[in-house]
Design a protein around this nucleic acid. Structure first.
Lengths: 317, 317
DNA sequence: AATGTAGCAATCATTTTGATTCTTTCTTCA
DNA sequence: TGAAGAAAGAATCAAAATGATTGCTACATT
């Protein structure tokens, strides 16, 4: 898959690998790179820039060629990436810039835009939560709930999760004596609470968090072009668990997170796939697995058929 | 805001800044860091590790303290970050690891989980699109559309965008002679097409892309706790454009992207905010601005009142 | 044809990093 | 209780990486 065995690259120092990776990335996703651009990004001198390209050329001579007309290196047709850039990471780099986003100002590609971020949690809230989790501490905070307004609570957080729309913190709420999700932006006045943590408040005791479900997503039976949906979600035809060859995408996910995913992807979770195929491209074939989710009210089409009362159930949208 | 002026840090080399930033980040978001952890992350030796902590201590003596009991540095109460970690970047780092994700394997925090990624575009598709855009080239591809199945097209792409759920590529479609969005995962057999590009096919000619709208998002009038919504979306009370003091969040966004955002955030776009407040926390106050969007059918509650026919409009969901 | 730019290569100076040794502080365990 | 061990700091010298400089080449611009 890669032009050189990974062990070869391990011989080089972190900083050297980083510069090689930068060349590699630019060639693969931009098609060309000039020595001056490498130098500018890392703040290095010309001698270093030349050496870096020389080294890259030794490692992957087929990957690039210098065009003297404009003095830029161009990717060749035989390009084999030296580093594995998975597409999620690549998109993040294109949209937000190369590097860690801290060390130096990130230069963005200009043609790649991520989702506008309407509700990043405040820095201090995030930092305090993150430290509390790392150090096994409780936090005291004011939480503005949609249903009951603001109130003070003590929470033992154990995870920070993105539900597709918002960042939540999950933890044990001492006010309600159960594990819950809290929307990070609804937290104010947070601080570390130096009290003893009981075993029942730890992540290990959060059964819905620790239980893994496997969701079986299939193209919505009401849809005209199931193949397009199957391609979209990279579904597998090798469905060994049944006699059919219906394409299916199995997704392993924590029970506590399953319903957020189903809602984010507009998955019809009714037993008889009765929701409109136009809006719902997917159907949850094994909808009975949601019995294990206390927030199943979030799953489209699931709660209504059981006559649940959404308004009385506490879930963090 | 920061303990030292940024100019001070500019004196240090990229690699040195990176190690300082790592210490800074770990203190802020984990609360502690050991010398060995720094060494392991960057693959450096003990002497270097000691020097890095010595330097960090010189730059920000109040930020950390060594506890001899367990030989770890701990963040103090007077901590002032040396580097600006915005919360979006911090969350990305916590969920996916420190660094660029390429140079060395990323060590993830273990307690922060991003949205499960169901449909990352294939690497080659993304790389080809990205290069074509960078170099101003057209691409020839097979596109599997939901309505008409697969067909070959030539496209002049100019941007890659995340609509909240999927990654799209936007560009001029020669088959339909207009700018359109294409879902990346529905693309197969892509390759560079070496044909001339006309001015009308360039990004500059994409009026919907280049036109900026300002969306005025307000808490849904039917909601019981508008203050909670206002906090959630960090709304501003200083609404100088009207006599009221109703909190509002103004979002500047390209016309071509506006409706995706409105759908992603479940914004009621009807003129009389008639959609249920339980599902729709926000209302688009200046809904008339959507007249400028050809894909307004995506905006919840907007198209229906104009008796549009969603099924006949080509938009990439 | 002259000039400028940005690439390569080689050399030597400078800076950064590694290896080694010795010390300190606190934990662990016999 | 006291000795061993682990992981930090500090200092020194060696090794490696980087910077500065010079001379060269290919091409674009004028």
């Amino acid at each position: 898959m890669f032009a050189e065995p990974a062990t070869k690259l391990d011989n080089y120092a972190y900083a050297q690998r980083e510069r090689l990776a930068y060349i590699d990335f630019r060639l693969q996703y931009q098609g060309s790179i000039a020595r001056g651009e490498l130098m500018e990004h890392f703040g290095t001198a010309v001698a270093s820039g030349t050496r870096d390209f020389t080294l890259y050329r030794e490692l992957a001579p087929e990957n690039l060629v210098l065009r003297h007309e404009n003095k830029r290196y161009y990717r060749t047709g035989h390009f084999k990436p030296l580093f594995p850039h998975d597409s999620q990471t690549a998109l993040n780099t294109l949209a937000h810039g190369f590097g860690d986003g801290v060390t130096s100002p990130r230069e963005v590609s200009g043609f790649c835009e991520d989702t506008p971020d309407l509700i990043a949690p405040p820095r201090d809230t995030l930092a305090t939560l993150s430290r509390a989790i790392s150090q096994g501490q409780a936090v005291k905070l004011i939480y503005i709930s949609l249903s009951s307004g603001g109130s003070q609570r003590v929470i033992v957080p154990h995870s920070i999760v993105n539900n597709g729309q918002r960042w939540h913190v999950r933890g044990y709420c001492r006010k309600h004596s159960q594990f819950r999700d809290f929307v990070c932006t609804r937290i104010t006045d947070i601080r570390i609470d130096h009290t003893e943590i009981a075993p029942a408040e730890l992540q290990a005791a959060d059964t819905e968090w620790n239980q893994q479900l496997t969701l079986e997503l299939v193209p919505h039976p009401g849809h005209d072009h199931p193949k397009a949906i199957a391609l979209d979600f990279n579904m597998d035809r090798a469905d060994t668990s049944s006699q059919t060859t219906q394409p299916v995408r199995r997704v392993a996910i924590r029970a506590a997170r399953a319903c957020y995913l189903l809602r984010h992807w507009n998955v019809d979770c009714s037993s008889d796939h009765r929701l409109p195929a136009y809006e719902y491209h997917l159907w949850l074939r094994n909808h009975e697995t949601l019995k294990q989710c206390s927030n199943a009210v979030l799953a489209p089409g699931y709660a209504t058929e059981r006559r649940g009362s959404p308004m009385n159930t506490k879930v963090s949208r």
